[in-house]
């Protein structure tokens, strides 16, 4: 896959799915730990910033040479650890990590979001495979000579 195609197909899709999941996670964690907290308009920017940081890390999965399944898994784990470190560090520096329970909840929600994004990407690939397989059957029947008929 060319870099441009990889960027638009994987990174952009990952970005939008991440934003949706981050909004849901922020709402859930906020309602549990700080239900009375109030925010300004700047709060709308945080899903975009965190979504951008998380999606940018998708580039770690890009390689010109073909990765083995083991290498792909290792890169995915490194990517998850990177996202956890970056987002938790940003929140810590911003004073948003009030307690250990909040930090653990956020870490868990990052894992859930990461898995959700990868699931969406996999479902997208599954759809591509189905379209291809349906077309393949038609392609093969178009070119297959009925041996019995011709003999």
């Amino acid at each position: 896959m060319e870099f441009k195609t990889f960027f638009f197909k994987k990174v952009m899709l990952s970005f939008f799915v991440s934003i949706t999941c981050i909004c849901a996670a922020m709402a859930l964690i906020g309602m549990i730990f700080e239900p009375s907290a109030q925010f300004g308009y700047e709060a709308y920017l945080s899903p975009l910033v965190f979504g951008f940081l998380a999606s940018l890390s998708t580039l770690m999965g890009y390689s010109k040479s073909e990765l083995s399944i083991k290498q792909a898994i290792i890169r995915n784990v490194i990517q998850l650890l990177f996202i956890e470190a970056v987002i938790l560090s940003v929140l810590y520096l911003g004073g948003a990590l009030a307690s250990l329970s909040v930090a653990l909840s956020l870490a868990a929600s990052i894992i859930v979001i990461f898995l959700t994004v990868n699931l969406v990407l996999w479902v997208n690939d599954k759809k591509t495979a189905k379209t291809f397989n349906d077309a393949l059957k038609g392609f093969q029947s178009d070119y297959r000579v009925d041996e019995n008929q011709s003999s």
Binding site: M1, A72, N76, L121, K126, L136
Partner: peptide, 16 residues
Amino acid sequence: NLMKLESISPALNGRF
């Protein structure tokens, strides 16, 4: 050989 291909399915990291 595409004529001998049964199907494709998604694997890891965008591969099939």
